[in-house]
Every structure is written in C-alpha cells, then in structure tokens.
Design a protein around this nucleic acid. Structure first.
Length: 270
DNA sequence: GTCGATGTTAGCAC
DNA sequence: TGTGCTAACATCGA
C-alpha cells in the first residue's frame, strides 16, 4: 500500500507514538530487510532516541539525537505498528525497535521488499538515491522542465522517483484520470495546459488521500480508484464499479511501462 | 495450483 | 550516454 499518502500517515503515527523515548533494543527477525550493517545499526540506535520525523516521497526519516538518521522504506507491503504486549505483536513483524517504556515500534512487511537503513543525513540519502523533489512540494515549473523533453509515455515518468518522489502505481493512474491525460501520451507532446492540469491533479489527489488517511473506500466518488479490481465489488453480478465515474464508459485495463494501468478511453485522450 | 500485486533496481538491448 | 523494457526479489491471497 505504501505510496506517499500512506507513508505520510505512518509518519504522523510514528511522531505521535515513538519520539523522545530511549531505544533499548533492536530486534531483527529478518536481516534481509537491513540495508545497513546490523552492528552499525544497533550501535547507532541503542541508547539513543528518535527526535523528529521527515518524509520525502515514500521514504520515512527518523533523525536520532546522536546524529544519523534511520530511514524506512516500505516496499509494497510495509507498515509500522506500535504495540506493547507480545500477544499484540503484529503478524509479519520483521524488525522491532524497543523503547524504555515497554512499547515497541514494529516494522511489518509481509513481502519483505521494504528496507531499514541508516544515513548520515536526509540530504545525503536523497542525493545518493537521486530522489527528486517530493510530489507535494514540486512546482508546476519544475515538473514541466523535468518532463517536457522526454519522449517516454507520461505514466512511467510519473512513477520515476528521480522526477518527483512519492507517486506510485494507483496514484499515477488517478492523477492522469483527474487531469484527463492518457497514460501513454508522450511527455514531450503534452501542452502547457496539460502540464498545468497534471500538476494540479497531483496536489488534489495526494491531499485528498492524506486527508482520508489513505483509506481508499473513503475517497470521493469521482475517483478512478473505485474502478480498480481490488476495490470491493458492491454485489455479485454488477460491475458499475468498473465504469468511469464521470462518463460511465467501461474502464480500460492495459499495461503501460510494465505496470497494470487503468484509464477511461473516453475521458483520457491523446 | 496459478496468477498478479501498491516498489525498486540490475541487466540488457537498442 | 540515454532510454526503456523485463525479470527478479518474497510472499500472500484471490
């Protein structure tokens, strides 16, 4: 689930639960998730505290009182959960940070594509990964400057974290739907007006998703997300949810840039 | 039992 | 050099 709105929701959750408490233990159930040497990580954490939270795109940063920054990336199925009793330990807990008050912050991730790492600073991590500006912070001008020379289809470019950080597969589809741009439209062929709509749609979709705490069923009716297959089917035999919320046309499911892509053939034209 | 999945990245072809 | 496609990662759940 973790695209920008989920990670922003996790950030707020961690800020409310896990700051300014002594870290007493690092529990690593599955070392494969560590992108940093285990001992170095333990040394950096034990006896320290998390003092702040930041987010760039899908990356969550937890600066430590002693300098370095813990970086969490949630892959496809990652999340965080604050708990105390062993009976409440979340399923798929892979790494857990224990605090002096007896609570623990679990990094859960069933598919284990997530990563826990350590960086010298947020800026160093951003530089090293080549992360572009956060999708909520990028300006219309920056976005257009980065894309208007590219001949690739617009959708995979939106997914490229070096262009702008935080947009994942469903958000890219939703943004393009709201902006009425076909996912395969070449970036270089988009008009200045289309870039304006694109930038605005990114803001609207992300803000809406964050406001709903990334709970999809609470999203507005006119969102394409309700047409995705994994949205709840209202009742057997009906497929209204697979039609465009704006014009009623059947939604196309195709592959663009190797990813499942939903779009309205009527509203999103070349 | 089979298939596809919200992310990232290495390897490869052009 | 830039670009873009595919497979692979590990696992779950439909």
């Amino acid at each position: 689930m973790p695209e920008l709105p989920e990670v922003e929701t996790y950030r707020r959750y961690v800020a409310e639960t896990s700051l300014h408490q002594a870290i007493t233990q690092l529990e690593v159930e599955h070392p494969r998730l560590l992108a940093t040497d285990h001992d170095a990580l333990r040394q950096a954490l034990i006896g320290g505290q998390f003092v702040d939270t930041h987010r760039i795109g899908k990356n969550l940063f937890l600066p430590l009182d002693r300098g370095p920054v813990l970086v969490l990336h949630f892959g496809m199925t990652g999340g965080v959960d604050y708990y105390r009793d062993e009976e409440d330990r979340p399923r798929f807990t892979r790494v857990a940070f224990h605090f002096g008050n007896g609570f623990k912050l679990a990094f859960v991730d069933s598919r284990m594509f997530g990563r826990v790492s350590l960086a010298e600073s947020i800026a160093a991590y951003q530089e090293q990964k080549g992360l572009g500006p956060d999708a909520l912070a990028i300006t219309a001008e920056e976005l257009r400057a980065k894309l208007q020379q590219k001949k690739a289809p617009i959708k995979p470019l939106l997914l490229d974290q070096k262009v702008t950080a935080g947009i994942g597969n469903w958000i890219a589809d939703e943004v393009l739907f709201q902006a009425r741009i076909h996912p395969e439209h070449r970036a270089s062929d988009l008009s200045p007006e289309a870039y304006g709509r694109l930038h605005e749609a990114i803001g609207v979709v992300l803000q809406t998703a964050i406001r709903a705490e990334a709970i999809y069923r609470d999203f507005p009716r006119e969102f394409l997300i309700h047409a995705r297959e994994w949205d709840d089917v209202p009742s057997p035999g009906t497929d209204a949810h697979r039609h465009c919320p704006r014009c009623g046309t059947a939604i196309d499911k195709t592959r663009v840039g190797g990813r499942a892509t939903y779009s309205c053939p009527q509203c999103q034209v070349f």
